[in-house]
Design a binder for these strands. Structure first.
Lengths: 238, 238
DNA sequence: TCAACTTTGTGCATGCATTCACAAGGGCCT
DNA sequence: AGGCCCTTGTGAATGCATGCACAAAGTTGA
């Protein structure tokens, strides 16, 4: 069989998955909106309605969904349940990923108790901390393990995703240990830049950066009145 | 004076601030790296070194910084202290913004105790919850107020930034109340799509979405071996 | 059966972001 | 003083994302 890329005329099932990052980032939003619609008893949804629920443009919804395949019906819309299934499958949520949370401070506690993980396809398989006085404590039905036992805990739990909620100073060390233990995806909450070997995915959530971005726009708004006035004057004068 | 845009030949100070969003999002990362460098006693840094510390490309650093002005010295690099000052000013961090956190559950507690806000230019001016049994509780030196008193608390504290850490169901209502009270920037942690009037900035942090994106890449990795093998075979055959 | 209506899927144009590559500029050493 | 070396700042090219606009396709009603 020749490569489908060069010969798309043949009725080959699909060329190859090349879903853009921006689309992947929006699929969970659609998924949540679809779950809401399903609970409300809606069985069919148009791209317009889904776009409104997800807070985006309807053309974007259609283009995003078209990357998954042609799952809509023209003149009708998309079947909610079927679309939930397809997006879940594409995101890999049909299996339950085991997650380890490292750093059981305020944020780690909050994450451990956060219901949103369990309800989607994630299972908190391990809680890990460096403080021995915290080891053995139970949070949300999971016992806290010591960081020195990370390798065993990760292996036993089949953990593939690690969440770092430690102070910045130890985050890279924790990250290295997670990778050494076999974790291949990391979500970092520590306010520091981490480096990981190729093949390991890394995402970061930085609370303080989000506020600083808001600060920028807030300041811009404060000076906006004067600035737009100035621009208007310049436009008239020139 | 004619508009500088049409006549850049004149020695006008600066055209007008048009800093790209992508650059604004990276400035806090540079700022943090620069703080580290300053603490380590470094007084001058090249775009290469800063890029390494921030985890990005050096061309990107130079282009980002060039939007702020020409603050570097050719052949030498950037003065760390001066750059910290310029970025802070650009981000509006020379003033302390007052922040209100709404929803003092696990996440709200964690945010209230998070030191990263206070050390950068933010002051937690109010903690707000709907649960009357929680009102009056002190968290990190701030008393919890009831949501019905939001307008007064926001006005007294001069709050311009609101953080929503409530359950999804009440997030839009809380958001509306914040806006009515005069808040013009909102950071939403609730897993739901919020709508705000024009003139109000909205950013969201969604823990579960981040995990789902990791899940996508994790699944892709799992099937990658087979896929690349298939592609290799196709390439040879064609 | 056919026409009118609705909604998908996508080609295309536009704009934004990234990255390369290099000229311009400034310090340092002889 | 002058040349060498280093680093910035930026034009230009490429790639990615967005959103318009419309043909293709399917449904509904007469």
């Amino acid at each position: 069989m020749t490569a489908a890329k060069q010969a798309p005329s043949a009725a080959t099932p699909r060329v190859r998955r090349g879903i853009p990052d921006a689309t992947v980032a929006r699929l969970p939003v659609y998924l949540r909106a679809l779950h809401s619609l399903a609970e409300a008893g809606t069985s069919t949804v148009s791209s317009d309605a889904l776009a409104a629920a997800a807070g985006v443009n309807s053309a974007k919804v259609r283009k995003d969904l078209s990357y998954l395949g042609s799952y809509g019906t023209r003149g009708v819309g998309y079947d909610v349940a079927y679309l939930v299934h397809q997006i879940s499958r594409e995101l890999g949520l049909t299996q339950r990923w085991a997650v380890a949370i490292v750093g059981i401070g305020n944020l780690g506690h909050a994450l451990a108790k956060y219901g949103g993980f369990a309800t989607r396809g994630f299972r908190i398989a391990a809680l890990i901390d460096a403080d021995r006085s915290r080891v053995g404590e139970w949070v949300n039905g999971v016992a806290v393990s010591h960081v020195d036992d990370m390798a065993e805990v990760v292996a036993e739990g089949g953990v593939s995703i690690g969440v770092i909620a430690t102070p910045a100073g130890v985050a890279q060390d924790v990250c290295d240990r997670l990778v050494a233990a076999g974790v291949t995806s990391i979500l970092n909450f520590a306010p520091t830049v981490l480096t990981v070997p190729a093949g390991v995915d890394l995402r970061k959530v930085d609370l303080s950066i989000e506020l600083q971005i808001l600060s920028f726009h807030e300041q811009r708004k404060a000076t906006e009145g004067a600035a737009t006035l100035l621009e208007a004057v310049e436009a008239v004068v020139s």
